[in-house]
Design a protein around this nucleic acid. Structure first.
Lengths: 227, 227
DNA sequence: GCCGAGAATTGAACGTGTTCAAGTCCCAGG
DNA sequence: CCTGGGACTTGAACACGTTCAATTCTCGGC
């Protein structure tokens, strides 16, 4: 995508990304023009396109930046908590907090989420690396918990929790409540509900449903451009 | 949005929408320019904007067009089937079939789905009328079924099924499998799973979860710009 | 038959993201 | 010190969605 070969190129790339970060945060995604980013970074319009093939690729870089912050924010919770519900709650609260400075801005870029051809599409090839990282984070959430899970459930759960996170973030984007309290309530309630449902899947009554659900998840995930 | 006052205006509006429909289907959303639509409709560029405030509003009109087709496609199934699972399956198969001609095209327009300010946002004010209609369709799905549902579940289920439909459509957009078979499998399996889960919600073991889940849904729906 | 008000229509002009051919800079190798 | 090539940089140019002041059309009321 953009691999500067010299240290000067590295600096230019960082300047462009920094300018974009600042302008996105203060003015929003759409109101920020590529010309304004270039000007603030002290480079020409064409130079920006040398490092980022499109405006959307700047958002991709922002995603990665936020993911790094999110991992750091998660670390204490994952080290401390052992119950699956608490770990889930902590990780989801952390992502909402991490993204908060970009809330007003998140609508437009997150919107391209549904376009299969967009680099921002979470299921696409260009976001595969990030997707693996996030799923890995949820694997850690599951692995470090004291929940008693059948192996086949534990194997598919991280991917499902990644989907769950996307759902929560989508809700968060729409959330206009003061202090984003609705999202926090949603997290508390659904994290709990998920853990209960996963626990119930052990009941004989639900065995068949569990088997079929797992088969479905595996069939679908098998066709995805994941690893 | 666009209310022609004369019959001539009505005809112009129809010509523009028809041209857009044809071009979207054959060339895709992004590849279709407003200039091309205007030319094919035999009007000037400015005229298009007199009837449709933006290119996205043409998609809004397309949504409505598809919804009408969907209702017609659903009618036989809803008249025939009584089991909730069969009704759900039928309605979801119908929408996938109805939208099929626009599959390659659906990515880009559906993508703006996440932008709170976009007229295409399913939770927004500009799509409130359509949202109510679709939720109404699912109310009919529930009402005409022989499923034994507690009143409070039956009250919230249509809204949740509308969400479910959006999830299925999102999957369908991404579905590259031949004949869209994966989506059909997803529909069959999840429709069944949903009905089982709803049925299980009557168990004493799940009473509390049900109560809390319903409270959450009500709290969230109360803040939405629905009616 | 004429008028006028409102609907319908026009196309030039604006700002945007993006492209690209041309230019400049840097430095390793001679 | 020169030179060549590759990284880097530039800004004009393009096509697009959108806006708007100006113009034309339509038709009911006199």
């Amino acid at each position: 995508m953009a691999a500067p070969a010299t240290s000067k190129g590295e600096a230019t790339r960082a300047a462009i990304f920094g300018a974009a970060l600042e302008l996105f945060r203060t003015h929003g995604y759409e109101a920020t023009t590529m010309r304004a980013i270039a000007e603030r970074a002290g480079v020409s319009l064409g130079s920006s396109y040398h490092y980022f093939p499109s405006k959307e690729h700047l958002i991709l870089a922002l995603y990665h930046h936020l993911h790094v912050l999110h991992r750091e924010a998660c670390a204490p919770v994952l080290a401390r908590e052992r119950s699956l519900a608490a770990r889930l709650r902590g990780v989801l609260r952390a992502i909402v907090m991490t993204c908060e400075p970009f809330h007003e801005v998140s609508g437009s870029p997150f919107s391209t989420v549904a376009d299969p051809r967009s680099p921002l599409n979470p299921f696409g090839a260009e976001s595969a690396a990030m997707r693996r990282e996030v799923i890995g984070l949820y694997a850690e959430v599951v692995r470090g918990s004291d929940a008693k899970l059948p192996a086949e459930v534990a194997a598919e759960l991280p991917r499902l929790l990644w989907l769950y996170q996307m759902g929560v973030l989508y809700f968060w984007i729409m959330d206009a409540s003061p202090g984003r309290l609705q999202t926090l309530e949603l997290i508390d309630e659904t994290a709990d509900l998920i853990v209960r449902l996963v626990g119930l899947a052990n009941l004989p009554l639900l065995r068949q449903s569990r088997r079929r659900a797992l088969a479905l998840v595996r069939a679908i995930a098998g066709n995805a451009p994941d690893n």
